[in-house]
Design a protein around this nucleic acid. Structure first.
Length: 211
DNA sequence: AACATGATCAACT
DNA sequence: GTTGATCATGTTT
């Protein structure tokens, strides 16, 4: 069993640069079902991505890059496949994957994932929470994977951190709603999630799926 | 003053 | 189980 699980992780299946150079909405959708893999304490920890949000280069006031380049959002202007971490409400971190080409300033927020490997690590870093809550919500996901500000600018193409091809999610299984927790750009349909998943941050009942 | 959040608690269906 | 209020807390505008 243990070996079986370890074998799930395979760096040779990691996604390459082109994957992240696609349109941000497309990347956000394509990331659903993929594996976020990180090395931690000499082992791999991994989660299946079940919920993302896109933040666009154009006409998106909620995107941190919409105000132009600042000290905080500089990583967003790197090439697709770069990590952008920021602190929110003085307490939590949020992890984003930069998309498209250098200088655009757009990204995908990782909101929730299903624990696949390294459950003990997630439990240690999160404290006393139920299994389905371990990687549920952007702040929690960041905490469970030990993401900090210093991780800003990391690239997703090393054995220590990468996105692995994993599960093919049918188009019909992906729900789309407006994004969560914002005022500006609140009407844009840029949140993607696996319908019926127990691991998404918010039941989309009231959110009213677009499709 | 606002903010891409989460934990907690109370009240409800 | 869900919803709504409230607070914790740092950084940006």
């Amino acid at each position: 069993m243990f070996f079986q699980k370890q074998n799930i992780i395979d760096f040779h299946k990691h996604l390459h640069r082109d994957f992240f150079l696609d349109k941000t909405e497309q990347v956000a959708k394509k990331l659903i079902g993929k594996l976020l893999v990180r090395e931690f304490g000499g082992q791999y920890i991994a989660g299946k991505i079940v919920e993302t949000e896109a933040y666009l280069f154009e006409n998106d006031p909620a995107c941190h890059a919409s105000v132009g380049r600042t000290q905080r959002n500089t990583p967003m202007f790197g090439p697709g496949g770069t990590i952008y971490v920021y602190k929110i409400y003085g307490i939590h971190y949020c992890v984003n994957i930069v998309t498209e080409t250098v200088g655009r300033g757009c990204a995908v927020l990782l909101r929730s994932a299903e624990p696949i490997l390294g459950i003990e690590v997630f439990e240690r870093l999160r404290g006393n929470v139920t299994f389905s809550n371990l990687l549920r919500g952007p702040g929690n996901l960041a905490k469970a994977f030990n993401f900090k500000l210093e991780d800003n600018g990391l690239s997703l193409f090393t054995k220590d951190l990468f996105i692995q091809d994993y599960e093919k999610i049918a188009e019909a299984q992906i729900g789309i709603t407006t994004r969560i927790g914002l005022q500006k750009g609140a009407d844009l349909p840029l949140r993607f999630y696996i319908k019926g998943s127990n691991f998404i941050s918010y039941p989309p009942s009231k959110e009213k799926p677009i499709r």
